Simulated scan of single mutants.
Amino acid sequence: MIVPPHFSTLRTRRRGEQQADMTVGLSRTPVDLELIVPVFNEERRLPQTLATTLDHLNRQRWKSAVVVVDNDSVDGTDEVVSRFTDAPVAIHLIGCSEHGKGAAVRRGISTSSAQYVGFIDADGATPIGTLGRVMALLERGHSAVIASRRAPGAHYRVEQPPARRLGGWVFRSLAGLTLPDIADSQCGFKFFNGDAVRQVIDQCRINGFAFDVELLGALIRHGHDVIEVPVAWSDVPGSTFSIRRDGLRSVTDLARIALDRR
């Protein structure tokens, strides 16, 4: 099992060397599955998620790689990634100077040549074991398979605070204007047929937290199906989402997405 290193570990690479790696990561060997992790200042939550994810992938039959997309972090996120370079599963670090989770995910997908590609959150809120069911559905021919906290059989292991739950209800109500048949568009665990998602990714423009709605809507408009799988989800402290800062922007983006469909 891959054990996450302690934060006291000495830095193993100078900043210039790490930036060189971020450029090389744009050209990657094709694999069956590429798993993208968008990050912004995630030095505390990322080690455990990477350790658990790499350990799980190493025990699967697919040839896999992990791609960490750094959204201009100013902490030690890049050094965390460098500590896993000897893992049995390939790990890459690439940069994204355009701010926003949507921009980071878009960069990871657009530079991928994997047969299947998807993304997870750095907090590991969705159990990585969910991936087995997701991959089985993708291999049967489905275009997009997403984790859902609202599909039948899903439940919360750790609930969100009341304010976040209220904000989530508002967001879901507005997202339903674009995605009426999807119960949960915002769970950060989504995987796609590589060709299908690369067909639409360049049409997406939303950089904020509403990017999932735009991406799923684009897939559906192009005739691709989206399947939800129930998960046991846990709220993990440390999210960069701010109701005050990001809430209004998300509502504005949702309105824009809905209007663009007309």
Rank of each mutant, 00 (worst) to 15 (best):
G176K: 07
S239W: 06
V251S: 03
T130I: 03
I91L: 14
E17M: 09
V74D: 08
E139D: 15
I227R: 12
P180W: 11
L166M: 14
W233S: 11
L179A: 12
R59Q: 14
L33A: 10
I91F: 02
T23Q: 07
L131S: 10
A255Q: 02
S148Y: 03
V226G: 08
A65L: 05
N71A: 00
R59K: 13
R262N: 11
T240P: 03
G76M: 13
G95Q: 11
A65G: 02
V170C: 11
R14H: 07
G25V: 02
G100A: 01
G95K: 12
N58H: 12
L248N: 03
E34G: 06
R140L: 09
G141E: 05
L137D: 10
R140S: 13
G167M: 03
S112E: 12
P4F: 00
I243A: 06
D78V: 13
V105A: 06
I146M: 13
G247P: 05
L46C: 03
R28Y: 09
L26C: 04
P237R: 00
P230W: 02
A258S: 12
G25H: 05
P38Q: 08
A125W: 00
L131P: 08
F119A: 13
N207C: 05
L254S: 04
R140N: 08
D75M: 07
S173G: 11
S234Y: 00
I2M: 12
G16R: 12
H92D: 15
L137N: 12
R14L: 14
V134Y: 02
D260C: 07
F209E: 12
D32E: 11
V3H: 06
I201K: 04
L131T: 04
F189I: 06
D184I: 08
P180A: 11
T178G: 08
E159M: 08
L57C: 10
L33G: 04
L179N: 10
F189Q: 07
G188R: 06
T130S: 15
D260P: 06
F40G: 00
P237C: 07
R165W: 03
F7A: 11
V229Q: 10
A65H: 06
V80K: 08
S73F: 06
G167V: 01
Q160T: 09
A147W: 02
A90R: 14
G118C: 10
R165L: 15
G108E: 11
S73N: 09
G153Q: 09
G194P: 01
I94T: 04
L259V: 15
F40R: 14
D78W: 11
L35Q: 12
A87T: 07
E98I: 12
N193C: 13
E214W: 02
D246E: 02
R262A: 08
V37S: 00
H99R: 13
R256V: 14
A125D: 04
F171L: 11
W169R: 15
M1R: 06
R150N: 12
V31I: 03
F209W: 15
G95Y: 08
V69Q: 05
N41V: 03
R198Q: 01
P162D: 06
R45F: 01
T178Q: 09
P230E: 09
D235Y: 15
V89W: 01
L248K: 11
E159V: 03
A218N: 08
V170F: 04
